[in-house]
Write a protein that binds this DNA or RNA. Sequence first.
DNA 1: CGGTTGTTTGAGGACGTTCAAGTACTGTGG
DNA 2: CCACAGTACTTGAACGTCCTCAAACAACCG
Lengths: 256, 256
Amino acid sequence: MITSRTTTWELARSTPLFSAVGEAVMSRLMRGALVQVLPKGAVLFEEGAEANFVHLILSGSVGLTASAGKPDSTVVEIFRDGELFVAPAAILELPYLVSAVVLADSRILFLPADNFRAALDAEPKLARAMVNVLARHWRLLVEQIKDLKLRQAAERLAAFLVAQAEAAGGPAAAAAGKPVGKEGAAPGAPAGSASGGASTIALREPRNMLAARLGMTPESLSRAFAQLEAEGVVSEGRAVHIADLARLRRYCALEG
Amino acid sequence: MITSRTTTWELARSTPLFSAVGEAVMSRLMRGALVQVLPKGAVLFEEGAEANFVHLILSGSVGLTASAGKPDSTVVEIFRDGELFVAPAAILELPYLVSAVVLADSRILFLPADNFRAALDAEPKLARAMVNVLARHWRLLVEQIKDLKLRQAAERLAAFLVAQAEAAGGPAAAAAGKPVGKEGAAPGAPAGSASGGASTIALREPRNMLAARLGMTPESLSRAFAQLEAEGVVSEGRAVHIADLARLRRYCALEG
DNA sequence: CGGTTGTTTGAGGACGTTCAAGTACTGTGG
DNA sequence: CCACAGTACTTGAACGTCCTCAAACAACCG
């Protein structure tokens, strides 16, 4: 606890949410908060449980899993460094729709939900910041639903890899938002260094979790990777090399 | 315009968002707003376009559709009376991820996006209310992703029908939130009139749109209805009669 | 009445899952 | 250093669900 105190603040300060609300609101939210360093596999909360905390990932990776009463389970979304979740359940005082599982060793901040709700009412800056967070998260899920409904397995993987490469390639590409089609023909002239050429990314989650997030089995994921070799994607263990990002982008947009 | 002025205010006043922000903020948002009465098939905006308005449905039904560069399109979500959309694109000043199509003749309020954003910064009550709206909408999509990933076609339809019946059955059931499993054994004694017994609901959207929303083809939807007859579901045109809501809930594993 | 649109039903096929081996990686103890 | 178990990933074959294609049918509206 004591050893991690300073680094916790540093990490927290660097998250988008907290830099938006400022020091004062930040420390108010931290009241009664606790930090936990959790290993892969740890469960933060379970589907159907009461939401007692809002969670902020200082470092690591957390998966939102759901089973909906079925024997098998899936991954609804994966959150990483700096992300806040799952506010909706805590805000609305409703039971969680998902469980949260640590996918890679993580340091996580637990903010008491009642305190968070009170701050939401009292601190306009917090409410305003949450609007942006939730708006971004909404778009995440909309993208995923589009993926699930009108792209097949290999295309979903391709879309995921493109998104990862863009996120890792630089904040500039991420801030510009994902290309959404409608921008005429394929862009022959890449804007940034990472937007058109080659790129190597590291998969930060185990492959079976990635498969679940993409709505397929591990077997299908393996076959999807095999299929993408024809598009210049080579996967060596945890590393994935993309020969031509623009080509991959074309593959999951136009191609069928 | 003039003829609809008064009824517009009445309708707007009855929406959850506006009753939360109060009269003052409400009229500020209405600055530069316009009301449109649109027939089925009208397109409010298109995927990839700039978000110039936030839309509030005074009456009717709107579908959020997406094609993601493919020839065929799907329905991401359906919104009805009193709902606000698609704030995220307008808030973040990013292009729409979806198109919006009127599914049943509707009266829709167009709120200028820049004015909305300004109000979001200046009016804490609006930001606070938006947090709740977005939190609810997040959960809508989470539920749908769970459906798509771990339920098959007929179960998705069953889950949709159950949700419709609960929403129509009374605001009490809706406010309590959807049952999420984990609440012990099956409730033998239904709380409300509509929670355990028979129920008849009306499909407010055309069947092909419903099929797209559920992530299947119209043919599959037809077969799904046929399958549900074994569970006591009879569909006669636009009306659907459910003999035993509890049974249907069990069927789609909303409970064990 | 014929044309259009929306729903149903059937047959065949594609995509992805399931089941079952098989292979490569990891860490542990001999 | 190597045998070993345990895990993670890959590969293959059979199956199931859902889609595609096609036709028949009903309902609506000119």
